[in-house]
């Protein structure tokens, strides 16, 4: 009953765990301006936070269900695309999360 994550080496396992929480923060921060899935993925990759579509789209759905994002289907370049942006609640949560992240970062720097 070994999980796939258990088969990774310990560093990779811990790195993925660490990254999981940061990804939410990165996605919320990127969506301060409206984007659709593909461009969002590219923007994240350019900032060193590459994410595959199998992780991004379910994450966007969860954040939207939590009321942190709003989305709408719109036609662009003759194709229907779903555009996401932060909701007012999302903006508030992002602010709180950033403060939390900075506080954790300061604490960790103190420990190191």
């Amino acid at each position: 009953m070994a999980h796939s994550s258990e088969t990774l080496n310990p560093f990779e396992n811990l790195r993925l765990e660490l990254r999981r929480g940061c990804l939410v923060l990165a996605v919320l921060a990127e969506l301060r301006s409206e984007q659709y899935g593909y461009t969002l993925r590219k923007a994240l990759a350019e900032h060193g936070m590459a994410i595959d579509e199998g992780t991004l789209y379910p994450l966007l759905r969860r954040l939207e269900n939590q009321g942190l994002l709003v989305s709408e289907w719109r036609e662009e370049d003759k194709r229907n695309k779903r555009f996401y942006r932060l909701s007012p609640d999302g903006k508030l949560i992002l602010k709180q999360l950033l403060a939390e992240w900075q506080s954790m970062n300061a604490s960790l720097n103190g420990i190191f």
Binding site: Y36, Y38, R61
Partner: peptide, 9 residues
């Protein structure tokens, strides 16, 4: 979901 995934691909 399929519309969004299709668009990405």
């Amino acid at each position: 979901i399929i519309a969004e995934l299709s668009e990405d691909i």
